[in-house]
Computed example of a mutant assay.
Amino acid sequence: MLHRLAPGEPLGLLALLGGGVLALGFCVAAAAGIGDFNIPLRTVFLAVTNNLDLTAAPLDRIEESVVWNLRLSRALVAALCGAGLAICGAILQSLLRNPLAEPFVLGVSAGASTGAVAVIVLGIGAGAVSLSFGAFAGAFAAFGFVALLSNGTVSGPNQTILAGVAASQLFNALTSYIVMTSANAQQARDVMFWLLGSFGGVRWPEFQLLLAVIALSLVVCIWYARTLDAFAFGDEEAASMGVSVGRVRIVLFGVTALMTATIVSMVGAIGFVGLVVPHVARFLVGPLHLRLLPACVVLGAVFMVTADIVSRVILPQQTLPIGVVTALVGVPFFSVLLYRARNRM
């Protein structure tokens, strides 16, 4: 039988989620105030309430515009990206029964990179095709390739992983070929920065689209939470419990591909978040997905917003690609987690 919540566990989960939401609110407020010139938290708060028509406080117009139009939207997009990547990681680690699975295991990131590079370097679409659309098209081309190789995503987890590896290698090779043969020096720098992730160009329209995609996907994943618990016992055992293994895989692989493609098309490839955050969430709340998925949302959002702040302050007058920061912050933490787990064995 599947593990059930103990009497005190719901309260502990609510306390964790409540503390995480408060931490996220503080991180978003800090992100909105930190930049080339710092803005006090009080001004950040009043700028937000002014634009929500809750107050009419007199503020410097430049500071208010920077908070509302630039930094706040960037911080909220970062939070949604962290939440989405963490959800994808948790889902894929369960479906594939592989603790190293993460959102880019299906080759979606590599495909998105190829689509974006084709727009940046080759100018495909002659201005009618945006960078985000090119990346999104490339991401789903890669997902379709994986689905074809793995027999419509209904095969076992090993075949799906191998298909994802093949897709990643193929599209990474195409990306390298395009850059090496057609890109000038400036284009090569732009491509490299995009491949490592950046929140520099996101605004409120990106937030609204991402919010809709992540919210809808989370509802679907929560709906299948107990089904995901059954996958821990293997495909045959899950089928014996009444789970339609093939249909569930198609739906959840499609949902994770949609989230990953949307995120990558907006901000580039950001690694490590979908790998480490689900493990941290399991360490805190256990493996049941009704608890795990909400914890991943909060922890992923806090992690990504914090990493974005670090990317802007670690070097004077420079912004590091967000993917560099997530790796620098996440690898040591993940190493400690693995070390502690090894000592318990």
Rank of each mutant, 00 (worst) to 15 (best):
I322Q: 04
H279M: 01
G138H: 05
A86E: 03
S182M: 11
G107M: 00
A225R: 03
A23F: 13
A47W: 13
A238P: 04
L149S: 03
L96D: 12
A118C: 12
T181S: 13
A185N: 11
N151Q: 13
G152T: 08
P316I: 03
N172F: 13
G156D: 06
S198I: 04
F133T: 14
I322M: 05
L106H: 01
A135L: 11
A83M: 11
S109A: 15
S168L: 05
N51C: 02
G82M: 10
L218D: 00
Q186F: 13
I161E: 06
A135C: 07
V305P: 00
V280L: 15
F303Y: 14
A47V: 10
V298E: 02
A301G: 02
G300C: 02
A301D: 00
L76H: 10
N98F: 04
G201M: 05
R344S: 15
F171C: 07
L292H: 03
R71A: 07
L85I: 00
Q186V: 11
H3K: 15
L275F: 08
I322S: 06
T260D: 01
F37C: 04
F104N: 12
I214L: 07
F45H: 12
E237N: 13
A86K: 01
V245S: 02
L210F: 10
E63I: 00
A137M: 14
Q186P: 00
V297A: 12
T256V: 14
N158S: 13
R4K: 14
P40Q: 12
T326C: 01
F37I: 08
D229L: 01
A83R: 05
R189D: 13
A215N: 11
P332V: 00
T227P: 06
V273T: 12
G127P: 01
L216A: 15
F303H: 09
F26R: 06
N51M: 06
T227M: 04
L24Y: 09
P332W: 05
S265R: 09
G25A: 13
R203Y: 08
D229H: 00
L315E: 09
L195K: 05
V336E: 04
A101P: 10
R189V: 11
F231M: 08
I214M: 02
A327R: 05
Q93I: 03
A139G: 15
L337D: 01
G19V: 10
T306Q: 11
A32I: 12
V77N: 05
C27W: 15
G82W: 12
G111A: 08
V129N: 04
N50F: 11
V220S: 02
T227V: 14
W194N: 00
L96M: 10
L174I: 11
S73R: 03
L5H: 13
R291V: 00
Y339K: 12
A137F: 14
L59Q: 07
